[in-house]
Write a protein that binds this DNA or RNA. Sequence first.
DNA 1: GATGCGATTCAC
DNA 2: TGAATCGCATCA
Length: 192
Amino acid sequence: MSEIGPEFFERDVVTCARELVGCVFRWKGCESRIVETEAYAAVGDQACHTWSRPSARDFVARHSAGTAYVYMNYGIHWLFNVLVKGAEGEGFVLFRALEPVSGIDKMLERTGPRPLATICAGPGKLTRACGITGADHGLHFLERRETGIRVGDKTTVAVDVRVGISKDAHFLWRFGDPASPAVSRKFPATGR
DNA sequence: GATGCGATTCAC
DNA sequence: TGAATCGCATCA
Protein backbone atom coordinates (compact mmCIF):
# COMPACT_ATOMS: atom_id res chain seq x y z
CA MET A 1 0.00 0.00 0.00
CA SER A 2 1.78 3.11 -1.16
CA GLU A 3 0.97 6.49 0.26
CA ILE A 4 -0.22 9.12 -2.20
CA GLY A 5 1.73 12.39 -2.14
CA PRO A 6 0.95 15.85 -3.49
CA GLU A 7 2.54 14.92 -6.84
CA PHE A 8 -0.42 12.66 -7.51
CA PHE A 9 -2.49 15.84 -7.84
CA GLU A 10 -0.08 17.54 -10.20
CA ARG A 11 -1.70 15.85 -13.18
CA ASP A 12 -4.86 16.13 -15.24
CA VAL A 13 -7.87 16.56 -12.95
CA VAL A 14 -9.95 13.95 -14.76
CA THR A 15 -7.18 11.37 -14.44
CA CYS A 16 -6.84 12.17 -10.75
CA ALA A 17 -10.56 11.74 -10.15
CA ARG A 18 -10.66 8.41 -11.98
CA GLU A 19 -7.58 6.95 -10.30
CA LEU A 20 -8.79 7.85 -6.81
CA VAL A 21 -11.61 5.33 -7.07
CA GLY A 22 -10.54 2.33 -5.03
CA CYS A 23 -7.97 4.25 -2.98
CA VAL A 24 -8.21 4.46 0.79
CA PHE A 25 -8.96 7.82 2.39
CA ARG A 26 -7.67 8.31 5.93
CA TRP A 27 -9.11 11.06 8.10
CA LYS A 28 -8.51 11.48 11.83
CA GLY A 29 -9.00 7.91 12.97
CA CYS A 30 -11.34 6.78 10.21
CA GLU A 31 -10.45 4.91 7.03
CA SER A 32 -12.71 4.56 4.01
CA ARG A 33 -12.51 3.27 0.48
CA ILE A 34 -13.17 5.96 -2.11
CA VAL A 35 -15.98 4.71 -4.35
CA GLU A 36 -17.16 7.86 -6.13
CA THR A 37 -15.52 11.10 -7.28
CA GLU A 38 -16.10 13.98 -9.69
CA ALA A 39 -13.68 16.20 -11.61
CA TYR A 40 -14.02 19.98 -11.91
CA ALA A 41 -11.62 21.85 -14.17
CA ALA A 42 -10.54 25.38 -13.28
CA VAL A 43 -10.48 26.33 -16.96
CA GLY A 44 -13.25 25.64 -19.46
CA ASP A 45 -15.72 24.15 -16.97
CA GLN A 46 -18.67 26.33 -16.02
CA ALA A 47 -19.63 24.03 -13.15
CA CYS A 48 -16.33 24.68 -11.38
CA HIS A 49 -16.29 27.33 -8.66
CA THR A 50 -13.44 29.08 -10.42
CA TRP A 51 -15.85 29.95 -13.22
CA SER A 52 -17.85 32.40 -11.11
CA ARG A 53 -16.03 32.83 -7.85
CA PRO A 54 -12.99 35.07 -7.55
CA SER A 55 -12.34 33.49 -4.17
CA ALA A 56 -11.98 30.06 -5.76
CA ARG A 57 -9.51 31.38 -8.31
CA ASP A 58 -7.65 33.02 -5.49
CA PHE A 59 -7.55 29.73 -3.60
CA VAL A 60 -6.04 27.94 -6.58
CA ALA A 61 -3.43 30.67 -6.97
CA ARG A 62 -2.40 30.59 -3.32
CA HIS A 63 -2.34 26.87 -2.58
CA SER A 64 -0.44 23.87 -3.87
CA ALA A 65 -1.56 20.50 -5.24
CA GLY A 66 -3.15 18.19 -2.72
CA THR A 67 -4.66 20.90 -0.54
CA ALA A 68 -8.19 20.40 0.83
CA TYR A 69 -10.85 22.72 -0.63
CA VAL A 70 -13.85 22.58 1.69
CA TYR A 71 -16.96 24.71 1.31
CA MET A 72 -20.52 24.81 2.52
CA ASN A 73 -23.31 23.96 0.14
CA TYR A 74 -27.03 24.66 0.49
CA GLY A 75 -26.19 26.31 3.77
CA ILE A 76 -26.11 22.88 5.37
CA HIS A 77 -23.50 20.52 3.97
CA TRP A 78 -19.74 20.69 3.87
CA LEU A 79 -18.27 19.36 0.62
CA PHE A 80 -14.72 18.06 0.40
CA ASN A 81 -12.46 18.57 -2.64
CA VAL A 82 -8.76 18.15 -3.33
CA LEU A 83 -6.91 20.82 -5.28
CA VAL A 84 -5.33 19.65 -8.53
CA LYS A 85 -2.58 21.87 -9.85
CA GLY A 86 0.14 21.16 -12.37
CA ALA A 87 1.37 21.44 -15.91
CA GLU A 88 -1.69 19.64 -17.24
CA GLY A 89 -4.13 22.05 -15.68
CA GLU A 90 -5.87 22.97 -12.49
CA GLY A 91 -9.09 21.95 -10.84
CA PHE A 92 -10.72 20.06 -8.02
CA VAL A 93 -11.67 16.46 -7.29
CA LEU A 94 -14.91 16.23 -5.32
CA PHE A 95 -15.31 13.23 -3.03
CA ARG A 96 -18.88 11.98 -3.46
CA ALA A 97 -18.99 8.64 -1.66
CA LEU A 98 -16.92 6.37 0.58
CA GLU A 99 -17.14 2.85 1.94
CA PRO A 100 -16.26 2.92 5.65
CA VAL A 101 -13.43 0.53 6.54
CA SER A 102 -12.33 1.39 10.07
CA GLY A 103 -13.22 3.88 12.75
CA ILE A 104 -16.80 3.05 11.94
CA ASP A 105 -17.93 3.60 15.51
CA LYS A 106 -16.63 7.15 15.34
CA MET A 107 -18.53 7.78 12.14
CA LEU A 108 -21.75 6.42 13.56
CA GLU A 109 -21.36 8.69 16.57
CA ARG A 110 -21.49 11.64 14.19
CA THR A 111 -24.24 10.40 11.90
CA GLY A 112 -26.39 8.51 14.32
CA PRO A 113 -27.31 4.86 13.74
CA ARG A 114 -27.81 4.13 10.06
CA PRO A 115 -27.05 1.35 7.59
CA LEU A 116 -23.30 1.30 6.96
CA ALA A 117 -23.58 1.63 3.19
CA THR A 118 -25.52 4.88 3.57
CA ILE A 119 -23.49 6.98 6.00
CA CYS A 120 -20.93 8.13 3.39
CA ALA A 121 -23.11 7.77 0.28
CA GLY A 122 -23.17 11.43 -0.77
CA PRO A 123 -20.76 14.36 -0.64
CA GLY A 124 -22.51 16.04 2.28
CA LYS A 125 -22.93 12.81 4.18
CA LEU A 126 -19.30 11.75 4.02
CA THR A 127 -18.07 15.03 5.45
CA ARG A 128 -20.47 14.69 8.34
CA ALA A 129 -19.41 11.09 9.00
CA CYS A 130 -15.73 12.00 8.87
CA GLY A 131 -16.07 15.22 10.84
CA ILE A 132 -14.78 17.39 8.00
CA THR A 133 -15.69 21.07 8.33
CA GLY A 134 -14.71 24.49 7.08
CA ALA A 135 -11.90 24.41 9.62
CA ASP A 136 -10.19 21.93 7.29
CA HIS A 137 -10.36 24.30 4.31
CA GLY A 138 -6.85 24.87 3.00
CA LEU A 139 -5.38 21.98 4.96
CA HIS A 140 -2.44 20.24 3.34
CA PHE A 141 -3.85 16.93 4.48
CA LEU A 142 -1.54 14.67 2.48
CA GLU A 143 1.42 15.76 4.56
CA ARG A 144 0.00 14.81 7.94
CA ARG A 145 0.08 11.55 9.77
CA GLU A 146 -3.56 11.39 10.73
CA THR A 147 -4.88 12.27 7.27
CA GLY A 148 -4.01 11.09 3.78
CA ILE A 149 -4.71 8.71 0.94
CA ARG A 150 -3.09 5.45 -0.04
CA VAL A 151 -3.36 3.37 -3.18
CA GLY A 152 -5.87 0.53 -2.94
CA ASP A 153 -6.67 -2.55 -4.95
CA LYS A 154 -7.42 -2.08 -8.60
CA THR A 155 -11.13 -1.87 -9.36
CA THR A 156 -13.45 -1.44 -12.29
CA VAL A 157 -14.31 2.24 -12.73
CA ALA A 158 -17.62 3.35 -14.20
CA VAL A 159 -18.21 6.74 -15.82
CA ASP A 160 -21.24 9.01 -15.77
CA VAL A 161 -22.30 12.65 -15.94
CA ARG A 162 -21.83 14.77 -12.84
CA VAL A 163 -24.63 15.12 -10.33
CA GLY A 164 -26.58 18.21 -9.38
CA ILE A 165 -25.19 20.76 -11.82
CA SER A 166 -26.82 22.64 -14.66
CA LYS A 167 -23.86 24.11 -16.51
CA ASP A 168 -21.61 21.83 -18.57
CA ALA A 169 -23.76 18.99 -17.29
CA HIS A 170 -22.85 16.67 -20.14
CA PHE A 171 -19.22 16.16 -19.16
CA LEU A 172 -18.61 12.51 -18.28
CA TRP A 173 -16.58 13.45 -15.24
CA ARG A 174 -18.17 11.35 -12.52
CA PHE A 175 -16.29 8.18 -11.63
CA GLY A 176 -17.08 5.30 -9.34
CA ASP A 177 -17.05 1.63 -8.49
CA PRO A 178 -20.31 0.32 -9.99
CA ALA A 179 -20.16 -2.71 -7.72
CA SER A 180 -20.12 -0.68 -4.53
CA PRO A 181 -23.33 -0.49 -2.51
CA ALA A 182 -22.19 2.88 -1.13
CA VAL A 183 -22.27 5.08 -4.24
CA SER A 184 -24.62 8.06 -4.05
CA ARG A 185 -26.28 7.14 -7.33
CA LYS A 186 -26.11 4.06 -9.49
CA PHE A 187 -23.96 4.13 -12.57
CA PRO A 188 -25.15 3.22 -16.07
CA ALA A 189 -24.58 -0.42 -16.94
CA THR A 190 -21.80 0.47 -19.35
CA GLY A 191 -18.78 0.63 -17.09
CA ARG A 192 -15.10 1.35 -17.74
C1' DG B 1 -25.78 45.59 3.99
C1' DA B 2 -28.99 43.04 0.80
C1' DT B 3 -29.81 39.40 -2.41
C1' DG B 4 -29.50 35.25 -5.09
C1' DC B 5 -28.40 30.66 -5.45
C1' DG B 6 -26.97 26.28 -5.04
C1' DA B 7 -21.21 20.26 -6.69
C1' DT B 8 -27.90 18.11 -1.36
C1' DT B 9 -30.86 15.49 1.46
C1' DC B 10 -34.75 13.11 3.01
C1' DA B 11 -39.45 12.27 3.10
C1' DC B 12 -43.58 11.31 0.49
C1' DT C 1 -40.52 12.97 -7.53
C1' DG C 2 -40.52 17.26 -4.96
C1' DA C 3 -39.81 20.68 -1.30
C1' DA C 4 -37.07 22.56 2.44
C1' DT C 5 -33.15 24.87 3.80
C1' DC C 6 -29.60 28.80 5.44
C1' DG C 7 -24.82 30.32 4.61
C1' DC C 8 -21.74 32.15 1.78
C1' DA C 9 -20.03 34.73 -2.03
C1' DT C 10 -20.85 38.38 -4.70
C1' DC C 11 -22.04 42.96 -5.75
C1' DA C 12 -24.14 47.43 -4.69
